[in-house]
């Protein structure tokens, strides 16, 4: 699983069957020190996260496991919120980023 920042929302009313009621969010994957890692991507959200939240997400085929319907073509799903990040360099980065 990877760390990410929720940076936006996606609205789609015409989704493949099985994804009804599943929210889609824009997330920016992060390095361990909080700097952005690659391009933002769209993930399903089962953790009711809001914009600016620090979360972790699962990718690949397992991304559909947390969803109500498991047999859906999904390759990224937010599965949890991050309360705190403890690093060797005991540098901490914000749980909530007001910039978003």
């Amino acid at each position: 699983m990877d760390l990410a920042r929720v940076i936006g929302r996606v609205v789609s009313t015409l989704k493949i069957e099985g994804l009804e009621g599943v929210t889609l969010q824009w997330i920016q994957p992060l390095h361990g020190d909080g700097t952005p890692l690659g391009r933002p991507l769209v993930a399903c959200d089962t953790a009711h996260s809001g914009i600016g939240d620090l979360v972790y997400y699962i990718d690949g085929r397992e991304a559909s496991f947390p969803l109500p319907v498991r047999f859906v073509p999904v390759d990224a799903t937010i599965v949890g919120h991050v309360e705190e990040v403890g690093l060797k360099s005991n540098q901490t980065f914000p749980r909530f980023d007001p910039k978003y």
Binding site: V10, V11, S12, L14, L24, W26, P73, V74
Partner: peptide, 21 residues
């Protein structure tokens, strides 16, 4: 696409999106 040689599938048509509100 089940059991088919496929690794990319369009699964939604977008209405809108926003970034940081």
């Amino acid at each position: 696409t089940e059991g088919k040689p496929c690794d990319a599938v369009i699964m939604a048509i977008l209405n809108s999106w926003d970034i940081a509100g």
